[in-house]
Simulated scan of single mutants.
Amino acid sequence: MATFTTYYHSPVGLLRISGTDHYISEVHFMKEEEATVAPAGTTPLPPMAIQAIEQLIQYFHGNRRIFELPLNQEGTDFQQKVWNELANIPFGKTISYQEFSRRLGDPKVIRAAASANGKNHIAIIIPCHRVIGAKGELVGFGGGLARKKWLLTHENKVAHGVQTLF
């Protein structure tokens, strides 16, 4: 099965998007030093890549709240359970790690849930940014806390009908 990797310059920086003709397997926030070496595409993008980029553009323009893409990332049964539960956090809402672990069925799995959340390779689409600390603080995000804040602010504004320009 052929795989692809492409890049999208989003309002929160360069995103690397990978997958196959059948699914998306990665949306990764590039670090500044990585962003300078991202190659320009010279071959036509497969339809799955185009679909992912179009949906991300719609999300950033405030026209998409739910992604409709086939996803595939390898992980343990517990990680899969965590990633599936992340997808149930509504657009524009946040949840604490404590509440998230309760939703997983056991409040004692808070650290394991946080670890699995951190291993999510499909940023934004699987909304790991919607999980916050117990007191509402922004904690732990592979893309950096500034991006997490931007994404949460963006979703909050869109959910409440506030127009934004970026």
Rank of each mutant, 00 (worst) to 15 (best):
L165F: 11
Q80S: 11
M1D: 11
I110S: 01
A159L: 08
F60Y: 02
I132W: 02
N88S: 15
G161L: 14
P90T: 09
L45F: 04
E137K: 02
A2L: 13
T94V: 08
I17L: 01
V139P: 03
P11D: 07
G161C: 15
G144M: 03
A134W: 15
E26N: 07
A2S: 14
A35G: 05
K108H: 10
R16P: 07
E33Q: 06
T6G: 03
S10G: 04
S115E: 12
W83F: 05
K149L: 09
P127C: 06
E34C: 15
T94K: 07
R130A: 08
L71C: 10
G161T: 10
L104Q: 06
T3R: 07
G144T: 02
M48T: 02
I132D: 04
F166G: 15
R103T: 05
T43Q: 05
M30L: 15
D77R: 09
A134Y: 12
K93G: 15
M1S: 08
L15E: 02
T164S: 15
L71G: 03
N84R: 14
M1I: 09
E137R: 01
K157L: 14
V82C: 13
D77M: 07
L45A: 13
L69I: 00
F100H: 04
A49N: 00
I125Y: 00
Q79I: 04
L104A: 06
V109K: 07
L45K: 04
Q51K: 10
E54L: 03
L138A: 14
I125E: 02
V82Y: 06
G41D: 06
I17H: 00
A2K: 11
F78Q: 05
F91W: 12
A146C: 09
L151W: 02
Y59K: 08
N120L: 00
Y8G: 04
